[in-house]
């Protein structure tokens, strides 16, 4: 074996030298400016016509706390309905059956194409169209009694959410390699079993970030149900300020609670993502 040829001169030895830290003057300057602007805004609010004592007093008022519970109950139930419908519609959309495909596309078109608040009002006022509802000969009831604010809000929010969630789920399923369907088929699985056992678990990893997004949207969208008398957070806050005229104070109370709920949800989403990341390289031991 020959020795390596001699290296050319004129290239100094840089080993042992570090890359210096830049001072980043502009970052410091811009951060200082932003802090200044924030301080001005805080001062303006502090000096403004806001009775902060009302904010702290109503922050934990019973009616407000009940409103949060109702908001969360509605958000969770409507999201559950939305995810269920979304999965079903997405599977129908990807089915080879043209009837199922068309029904699914029609559903998405209808409920994504009209404003949510309009859908809520329609559900709530269903009694104007159908005074009595039921199964002919078996059971019937007055629509006014059945279509409570709770049920109208659940149907309105959940069915609307299903239209959006179906597209998220469809994107997730399409992101799974076609070879996975084929491998599942090759070991004798039918379409639905392959979806449930092989495709959906892999799609979950992709759909959780957008679903987390959708759920945060849902928490806030429940406030629209205030127009149909569902006693959620905003509705209860409004009821208080109708009585005491402290409009801004109570809106701040509601706003703080929405912020808090959303702040708690973000780390929960991270936990879920980790659960469904099984087998991916980023978690490999």
């Amino acid at each position: 074996m020959k020795t390596a040829p001699a290296l050319a001169e004129g290239f100094p030895d840089l080993s042992g030298m570090r890359i210096a830290r830049e001072p980043h003057w502009f970052r410091w300057l811009s951060a200082a400016l932003i802090v200044l602007v924030l301080a001005l805004i805080v001062r303006a609010f502090a000096a403004g016509q806001i009775e902060w004592s009302y904010v702290s007093r109503f922050l934990t008022a019973k009616v407000i706390l009940e409103g949060i519970v109702n908001t969360m109950v509605m958000a969770v139930l409507a999201m559950a309905l939305g995810i269920f419908l979304g999965v079903v519609i997405a599977i129908m959309r990807l089915s080879p059956n043209p009837v199922l495909k068309t029904v699914a596309a029609g559903y998405t078109w209808l409920f994504r194409g009209t404003p949510l608040i309009l859908q809520l009002l329609l559900w709530f006022n269903l009694a104007l169209v159908f005074p009595t509802i039921g199964i002919p000969g078996l059971w019937s009831a007055r629509a006014v009694d059945v279509m409570t604010p709770f049920l109208a809000a659940l149907l309105g929010l959940g069915i609307n959410q299903g239209a959006y969630t179906s597209e998220v789920m469809r994107a997730g399923m399409l992101s799974v390699d076609i070879g996975q369907y084929e491998a599942a088929q090759a070991i004798g699985m039918g379409r639905l079993r392959a979806l449930r056992r092989i495709v959906l678990p892999q799609a979950m990893r992709v759909v959780i970030p957008p679903l987390g997004n959708e759920f945060i949207g849902m928490v806030k969208a429940t406030s629209l149900a205030s127009v149909i008398q569902y006693p959620e957070l905003l509705h209860n806050a409004e009821n208080i300020y109708y009585a005491n005229s402290r409009v801004i104070e109570l809106l701040i109370v509601a706003g703080l609670w929405y912020l808090l709920v959303v702040s708690v949800l973000t780390p929960l989403q991270m936990l879920l993502e980790r659960r469904f990341a099984r087998g991916t390289l980023r978690l490999a031991r």
Binding site: D177, G179, Q180, E182, A183, A184, Q185, A186, I187, G188, I198, Q202, G279, T280
Partner: peptide, 15 residues
Amino acid sequence: RLKTGMVFQRFNLFP
């Protein structure tokens, strides 16, 4: 299909 076993070019293991 159960009478045949298939091995794919790109493995297609369930990740």
